[in-house]
Design a protein around this nucleic acid. Structure first.
Length: 577
RNA sequence: GCGUUUGUAGCUCAGUAGAAUAGAGCGUCGCCCUCCGAAGGCGAAGGUCGCGGGUUUGACUCCCGCCAAACGCACCA
């Protein structure tokens, strides 16, 4: 990376300067103490290093420090300058042309970091109840989770994506009883869900169970014992509804380009005895006590703000109990790191799950929980609160409305810490107001230029054909045997674009290391913007063959980098729009 | 009351690790197609970085207090 090259040159020069006693009282320098930054004003340079922080060791003024360091720098064809305590740097033709060459050489692997520590990661996200369709909030975790998985894999990690199915709790009972009512309605009974608000909470009154009821009747035409509801019938209803909803969820995920390696059933965790095993281990190690008929886990000994019930007075488990077992199971499967994406409404759970991991002898730092703020829908400029019952817009509705590409992009484009305003109208527009189209348009435009480069042109008035600016073979030669010096003719007018293409590498690295996928969305918009700007001020196809080849190389570079980035986002990079 | 997160231009958001004039997009206003996709570009206006202290040579950034918003604070999942 250019900024690392620059930093390395300066650090090497500092060591040499110290040896010659040119940095006052400074006797040693440890690498990494300084860092590069982007000058606010581009006139200063492409990158800058502020050496003021060395002043207290050297005991001489920052400008003099900078000046003295500069005397030891191998400048090659790069430009260095000193302003106050800053050493400014402008990349020369070698670095810039090599940067473009690297895109051609590495192609789909361009930007993959080298010499980084990689891990075996289990990434858990969405993990919804199989009790109904996904809502918009799930869409954010789905998009961000799958993008993060793609990103971490590209970085070099081994990533295993898992969806935890909450198929064991009372929610499933609620689902089964709700289906019973829908079935009875379908069979002609005059019956409805309770109108009393509190009683109604024991049901899922949404319309989505109506088609499920119809299917149920087809499969079990002789099933009539709904009143009173027998245990066997209830189980039949529960299983049927659960399987049905799971299938609906999985089909939608598939369509949304979200692909899990495993769906982990909470029920299987209970059946395997792993839940009881964990509870017993906690009892054995004295981390459990009885109070008011329930068993409590001393999570407060491990940083939680209070102890938590792990066995209810009626002997059943809490949700936490299973979750503890689940996380222990993940660790026992040998993962170096567990990353969970949870809604911010679950933040209270982080401390207790970490506490349980520690109490059971594992390293709680292996668990990294990314808490995501929720999603607001904006329709015609008005915020629509995602209430649990009213105004419930499903993820499927949203995708039908705005498309997979726009939904994925919008759901990924904001910092996970901020609530996301999803503007449906904006996500649908085909103009620069919509960042997805803006970026896709840049890609399509690049493709279009490449098509024009090898196509003969027909003059509609005269009917004459002008030969293609270059042959297909010449274009292939340009791509397959790319030479670094190809772009030199356009270096001056395209520097910003080249630097932006080069920045892809550091963007990917920090994005993966900070788990912030929105930076990819931002980057892709910035690159598109630089490209549009370049396009407007530089004619690509022209009679000047060398200039044309230079600019075509950049167009190809932009196309490759945009495609790589969009691949990580799993958003289409269209050839035409 | 306690905890987590957020407060930056009219709107939606960036701002890496504390530094040189606070950055984008949208919106508003003005300009640019006989020429590769104008679904684009160029420019202008627009800011007491929620408020008040503190640390520092230097704070949007770190610390403390306050104000506002969202979400939690179950023997629910």
């Amino acid at each position: 990376m250019i900024k690392d090259y620059f930093l390395n040159e300066i650090e090497t020069a500092i060591k040499k300067a110290i040896k010659d006693n040119k940095l006052g009282e400074m006797k040693e320098y440890t690498r990494g103490s300084l860092s590069t930054e982007r000058p606010k004003n581009a006139d200063f340079g492409d990158f800058a290093i502020n050496v003021s922080s060395l002043a207290r060791f050297a005991r001489i003024a920052p400008p003099l420090i900078a000046k003295n360091i500069l005397e030891y720098v191998e400048k090659d064809n790069n430009e260095y300058s000193v302003v106050a305590g800053f050493i400014n740097f402008k990349a020369g033709k070698t670095l810039l042309s090599n940067a473009i060459e690297e895109i051609f050489k590495k192609d789909t692997n361009y930007g993959k970091p080298e010499n980084v520590k990689t891990e075996k990661i289990l990434l858990e996200y969405i993990s919804a109840n199989p009790t109904g369709p996904f809502h918009i909030g799930h869409g954010r975790w789905a998009a961000m989770g799958s993008v993060l998985a793609n990103l971490l894999k590209f970085y070099g990690h081994e990533v295993y994506q898992e969806f935890y199915i909450n198929d064991a709790g009372s929610q499933i009972q609620k689902l089964g009883r709700s289906l019973a009512i829908r079935v009875r309605q379908e069979l002609g009974e005059d019956i409805d869900f309770p109108t009393d608000e509190i009683e109604r909470k024991n049901f899922y009154p949404g319309d989505y169970l109506i088609p499920v009821a119809k299917e149920f009747i087809k499969k079990y035409p002789n099933e009539k014992t709904f009143e009173p509801l027998s245990d066997t019938t209830l189980k039949l209803l529960c299983d049927f509804a659960k399987d049905y909803e799971e299938k609906v969820q999985r089909d939608l995920l598939d369509n949304f380009r979200v692909h899990f390696d495993n769906f982990y059933s909470e029920l299987s965790l209970h059946k395997s005895g792993k839940v009881e095993e964990c509870v017993q281990k906690l009892r054995d190690s004295g981390k459990i006590y009885e109070k008011e008929g329930a068993e409590w886990f001393k999570s407060s000994e491990y940083g939680d703000d209070q102890d938590r019930v792990i066995k209810k007075a009626d002997g059943s488990n809490t949700y936490l109990t299973a979750d503890i077992a689940y996380h222990i199971d993940k660790l026992e499967r040998g993962f170096d790191r567990l990353i969970n994406i949870w809604g911010a409404d679950h933040h209270g759970y982080v401390a207790r799950v970490k506490a349980s991991i520690e109490a059971l002898g594992y390293d709680p730092n292996k668990l990294e929980v990314l808490l995501g703020q929720l999603v607001n829908l904006v329709i015609n400029g008005n915020e629509v609160r995602m209430g649990k019952r009213k105004n419930m817009v499903t993820l499927e509705d949203l995708i039908d409305e705005v498309g997979v590409d726009a939904t994925r992009f919008w759901m990924s484009m904001r910092n996970i810490d901020t609530t996301l305003d999803f503007d449906i109208e904006l996500a649908k527009t085909n103009s620069d107001e919509n960042p997805v189209f803006y970026v896709q348009y840049a890609h399509a435009r690049a493709c279009s230029i490449l098509r024009n480069a090898v196509e003969e042109k027909l003059n509609t008035e005269t009917g004459e054909k002008t030969p293609a600016p270059m042959t297909k073979a010449e274009l292939d030669e340009l791509i397959n045997n790319y030479k670094a010096e190809t772009i030199l003719p356009t270096l001056d007018t395209a520097k910003k674009l080249i630097l932006k293409l080069e920045e892809y590498k550091s963007m990917i690295k920090t994005s993966a290391e900070t788990r912030q996928v929105y930076t990819i969305c931002r980057y892709v918009q910035e690159l598109a913007s630089e490209f549009h700007s370049f396009y407007n001020s530089n004619r690509v196809i022209s009679d000047d063959k060398e200039m044309m080849r230079a600019r075509l190389a950049l167009v190809i570079g932009v196309k490759k980098v945009l495609r790589n980035a969009l691949n990580i986002l799993a958003v289409n990079a269209p050839e035409k729009m």
